[in-house]
Design a protein around this nucleic acid. Structure first.
Lengths: 67, 67
DNA sequence: GTTATATGTAAAGGTACCTTTACATACGGA
DNA sequence: TCCGTATGTAAAGGTACCTTTACATATAAC
């Protein structure tokens, strides 16, 4: 059960750079990049902050891959 | 920005024990207990599995405490 | 062709998450 | 009382998350 994320898609839809998003969320650019590249999942807290940032419900940003 | 969770409330509403919930989710009872007691937050993956388990949207199980 | 912007990646370190193993308290029923 | 069930908690170990620092490539503008 992997977690799929659409961070890159939503970020690019809004024409936001990794740098700006990192600043806005008070985290590092490397963290954004690693999450977009699927290196690891964000913590629940960071995931919730990203939902608020993009103003979307969970299922539009993170969801479980079934198998 | 703390994460608030209502795991205990939803679990008890459904009359499910920590033991059964842990078995159903294939995790340990200690993990359920620690999360209910606020010792730490679940990973995003486990949080998503709990949403599916209780069949509720994110905001009914986990949300950010504002301040 | 140099500069600025955006992104990719890596190593090292700290903390959070989750496990296994173990012991403990509280409660209800036989 | 004794037993079974439910819950609380602790220590030790492994992996995941996130940081700081650093260097790297690609592109577009001037």
């Amino acid at each position: 059960m992997r977690v799929i994320n659409r961070v890159r898609e939503l970020r690019q839809q809004r024409s936001i750079t990794q740098v700006k998003m990192a600043e806005d969320l008070a985290i590092t650019r490397q963290t954004i990049n690693a999450i977009e590249k699927g290196k690891y999942n964000p913590s629940l807290e960071l995931a919730l902050r990203m939902l608020a940032y993009f103003d979307v419900p969970m299922e539009q940003l993170f969801y479980l891959e079934e198998e």
